[in-house]
């Protein structure tokens, strides 16, 4: 079954080959804002958007490699991407994280 999948020319590769350059261009633009951003919230916002972008990307790669075992990393990335937001905001507001 797998050999048949490998040998046939499928439209999936075509779709991914059209779609991925858009996401990668967006990632490059986000990272330009991340390194240029004048204040801390700007940088964190850009890194967040980059991470959401890359969560899409990790799922697309799991589809591209045709394996069901590579689907857990995007879930995990999406779950605690906002941890840095919370820590940085708490530090900016109160200077001490635990109170």
């Amino acid at each position: 079954m797998l050999v048949i999948v490998m040998t046939s020319i499928d439209p999936l590769t075509l779709v991914l080959a059209i779609g991925t350059p858009l996401y990668l261009a967006a990632a490059v633009l986000y990272s330009i804002r991340a390194v240029r951003g004048p204040t801390i919230p700007d940088i964190i916002l850009a890194v967040d958007c980059l991470s959401y972008d890359l969560a899409v990307f990790l799922s697309a790669i799991a589809l591209y490699y045709k394996t069901p075992f590579m689907t857990a990393p995007p879930i995990m990335l999406a779950l605690w991407v906002y941890l840095l937001d919370i820590y940085a905001s708490k530090y900016l507001i109160t200077r001490e994280v635990g109170v």
Partner: peptide
């Protein structure tokens, strides 16, 4: 092109793949 993690699913003819 298709690189997969070294995990078995249980499909026939998988070992050579």
């Amino acid at each position: 092109y298709p690189v997969v993690p070294p995990v078995y699913i249980g499909v026939s003819g998988e070992e050579t793949y």
